[in-house]
């Protein structure tokens, strides 16, 4: 169903959600937008967070010997690209019991961007209006058009949407594509070249900080290490030399250029060949957080100018 929520009612709407659930939403600290647990509806800030809330389902660091009592949580204010990231990861993680358990306790309310960001290219993978979401909010005049599929988001603070609003929402991706031209990914999985000099060029710049992995809403690789009374699972990065180092020191990807190639080919080729979906939601965070500004869009453009 499609509704309309007046901006004035948004804090109360969130307060109502807070009565029954934990709400993990976007907040503003200085000029930075981050995810945090909200104490009341006024703390919410409608903005694109620096990192996706991937951490909620795949923790950046977790002691596997400790078990948390997971609670039902609402992720409020996630951008469409980040939510799409979870849906993409499911192609692999649907077999993971822990992931499924956590995922089933999460309700997502995504906010559709009202204008294109400078880093993203989400129109390449569909656009900011998603086909499947608990609730999605689209800015419209003095409020939001809200499409609800998950009943926890129902509220009597909303009114039914007018026909004009429904039309605006339906046609939003097309409209957005005019503002943010989609990149051409046709056959890119076949066109990408293993021996391309591009990988050496990128390796010259890359300082292997791992930011592209840590900020990516679709990267799910982890490593497990053991300490005293603990068994730690933490985010890993395929840009690191130790990622593929085997016992005895042999390494199938010994140099940075081969690791960068792996990252981009996994994103744009291998995953598509296996699962029929690109391992990228077009959020552009890898470019945004990259200290030396390696741009995944340039990689796509190289093969499909």
């Amino acid at each position: 169903m499609i509704y309309f929520l007046n901006e004035k009612n948004l804090p109360d709407y969130i307060n109502n959600l807070l009565k029954k659930y934990r709400v993990y939403g976007t907040k503003r600290i200085g000029n930075d937008v981050i995810f945090d647990y909200l104490d009341n509806g006024n703390e919410f800030y409608d903005g694109r967070s620096i990192l996706s809330p991937k951490n909620m389902i795949i923790p950046s660091w977790k002691n596997l010997n400790e078990h948390d009592n997971e609670k039902e949580t609402i992720i409020f204010g996630i951008r469409s690209c980040d939510l799409l990231g979870f849906q993409i990861m499911e192609s692999v993680l649907k077999l993971d019991i822990e992931y499924n358990m956590k995922r089933s306790l999460m309700h997502f309310a995504n906010f559709i961007c009202s204008e294109p960001c400078i880093y993203g290219f989400c129109t390449t993978f569909g656009g900011p209006k998603l086909n499947d979401s608990g609730a999605q909010f689209l800015r419209y005049r003095d409020g939001y058009i809200v499409e609800i599929r998950d009943n926890v988001f129902q509220s009597n603070l909303m009114t039914n949407a007018s026909e004009e609003m429904v039309k605006y929402l339906e046609g939003y991706n097309e409209h957005f594509s005019e503002l943010m031209a989609p990149l051409n990914t046709e056959d890119i999985e076949k066109k990408m070249s293993w021996n391309d000099d591009l990988w050496n060029e990128l390796a010259k710049k890359c300082i292997s900080c791992g930011a592209c992995n840590y900020s990516c809403p679709t990267c799910f690789c982890f490593d497990i290490n053991e300490g005293e009374n603990e068994r730690i699972m933490e985010w890993d990065s395929c840009i690191m030399e130790g990622f593929t180092r085997m016992a005895g020191g042999a390494n199938s990807r010994p140099d940075l250029s081969s690791r960068l190639r792996q990252r981009f080919m996994h994103k744009l080729s291998y995953h598509y060949l296996t699962y029929g979906i690109h391992l990228c939601s077009g959020c552009g965070r890898c470019y945004e957080t990259c200290p030396v500004k390696i741009d995944i869009r340039d990689v796509i453009r190289r093969y499909n100018p």
Partner: peptide, 13 residues
Amino acid sequence: IPSKREDINYGTL
């Protein structure tokens, strides 16, 4: 989370 302050680390770590 890397802060996006432009005068120091401009969103990178």
